[in-house]
Each structure stands twice: as C-alpha cells, then as structure tokens.
Write a protein that binds this DNA or RNA. Sequence first.
DNA 1: CGTGTTTGACCGGCGC
DNA 2: GCGCCGGTCAAACACG
Length: 361
Amino acid sequence: MEKKQENHMANIIFPDEIPPSAFGGGSGGSIFDMAGTSCETSGCGGGGGADKWGSSLGFMDLLGIHQDFVAPSLFDSFNHSPILPPPPPSSELAAVFNHHDDMLLNELDTNTKHFHQGSLLSPAASAVPESSEVLNNPATPNSSSISSSSNEQPANDEQNKTGDHDDEDKTKKPLKPKKKNQKRQREPRFAFMTKSEIDHLDDGYRWRKYGQKAVKNSPYPRSYYRCTTAGCGVKKRVERSSDDPTTVVTTYEGQHMHPYPIMPRGTMAFATDSSSFGAPSFVVPQPHYLHQHLQNQQQLQPYIYTSPPSLNITTSFSGFFQDKPSFINPNSSALALKDHGLLQDIVSTPMRRETNEEEDQ
DNA sequence: CGTGTTTGACCGGCGC
DNA sequence: GCGCCGGTCAAACACG
C-alpha cells in the first residue's frame, strides 16, 4: 500500500523548538521541505524501473547525503556508523538531537512511549525509565555513558531472540524465544518528521517491511522496517501523523554497522552522483557545521531547494539547518530550481507548531 | 526464484 | 490477574 505512494512532497521537519535560551532565541522553524515527485519519475533510481526501491523517495538522495562525499552524513551521524569518520563529539549534535527529542516527544507521545527525553541534556539524570530508549542519542557514539545498554549490543533482535531457545515457547508457535527476566533492550532511537506524501523515504539503506500496525488514535498505520543487510538489526518505524497527514514520522532504531548497501537499480548510484540524476543536492551539514549554525540561531533562514520538474522535489531547511546547505554539485538540479525562485516556498514554523500543538492534544 | 509486502496471530510490557 | 497495546513473527502472497 505504501508501496505505491504518490509522493510529491517531502518536507523534512526538524524540531523547531530549540529553546531560545539554548540557542540564542531560535525562533525559526526547523523545517526543511522536500517536495518531490515519486521515484517513478525518471530521475529516481537512475531510470531503473525501481519499483520497491523506487517507491520510496531517495531520502538520502533528497537530502543530498552522499556517504562517499559527505561524511558523516546526517544519518551516519545518527547511527554513528563505525565505517565513517569519527563521530562528532556528542555535544555537537547533542543539542540537535535533544531538540529532536523534545519535538518528537511532543509529536509522538500519544502514539509511542519510545521516545526518550533529555537523552543528552541529562543522560544520567534521565529518569526516564526505559533502560535503552532513553539513551537514544545516536549522535553520541562514544558516549557510552549515555547509551550503556543498547549501543554496544548487537543491533539485532534476531540474535537476542535466537540466543536462548526455550522449548516452552513453542507450544503454540515456534515464535522467537525472547529472553526472560530481562527487558528487551532497545537500540538508541532517533526520529524525525518529514513532510511527505510517501511514508517510506529511502535513506540509502535497504529496508524490509516486517510489520504494520494500526496506530491508536490515528487512522494511519505504522509500518515497521528492518535493515535487510545481514547482521544489521537496525529498524525503523514509519507512521503518518494523524493530525497532519502530510507529515511522516520516521523513527530509526539502532545503528548501521555497515556501509550503504549496493543499491540495485540506481538508488546508490543516485547517492553517489546526484548530478547525474538531478537529485537535490544539498548536503546535510556536518556536525561542526550544525554546531556552528546552532550558535547562529538568530538568523533562522529556512532554505528550500527544489529539484527539477522531473523530480519536483523541494527541500527547505530551517532551524538548525538554517544556513545554506553546501551544494554537492553546482550543476545539480537543486541549484537549478533554486534559480527558479522556489526558495521562496518556505514552510512556516507556525505550521509546524500547529502540528505540534495539535498532536499534543 | 529471489526479494519484499501483507496480514493475522502471538508475545511481552505495562497500567489498572 | 487481566486487558490493552506496541512490537514481532512468519506464512502466504506479489512482483520482476
């Protein structure tokens, strides 16, 4: 179902509620819009008839995240993949993620308990009960103190499940023998909201959907995905905001301990050379970059980059991405559209807040 | 045939 | 203890 989303817009919404006190009065929204067409269009997937892959908008691509080009990318930072350059000091992205957390808590508390609070603000003090979820600070790979549990654990549930087989569990069904007397540990989580008509944004990794559940108080189901890379237990949940159907909430759990998979049908190629496909090409700021901009919060300037008509992708940044994203390729479509004056298309913060408030209720 | 999705059932945590 | 609910499993199915 979500397989064939028509996606024509993908606005990634990052938290815009950084406390002014924290960032010098950041009032701007942390929204960046990505209005794109579906990958069915020529651009996506490098022309390969990407069905499954094509169905999900090249999220990383949209983000202009090119692992081989920009590292650590946003997601890599989130996942602090070992294959990437040393993760940033926790402090740098910490704020950002806390920011996310706060926002997400607002946005999602009603639907999930898994969003941690104050993951970074006070790791130790995070009285949040969840042993692992709280730790959710993907941006702090080295901060073992924060993520005492999950990070060092094999990112796979699979392993935990198969670790100890209790026969009694098989009375009804050969289901996964989960560890008893031991809370299931969750991987650190990171979530963000996306303005998109497609639920499953392609972030460069291969995901396999393993479940879908109806979300309480929401007409939209939540989908569960797992990274298909062998040994990688990273999961992600995707759900659409009930209040704002155009908003998709994606929650990543765990960290990829592997490079991007070789994407079949061009997605990867997409990611490695956006210029060839007209993918939007802004680069998610690197940690130091983020940090720097967080400090310059006063000048919140949302940015919107739009892909060429073929892709119809519009992306805007604001909030901690307030500064100009670095363009990977000046010839990219992003710039092209930028020239089209689409940068004016800024999603206002109020819009975000509206959503927040609504969901808070 | 390989890979991914769908979907009903099951499991475990948690609140009452 | 019970029921709700989120998360997961896995068989069946779809698709290229």
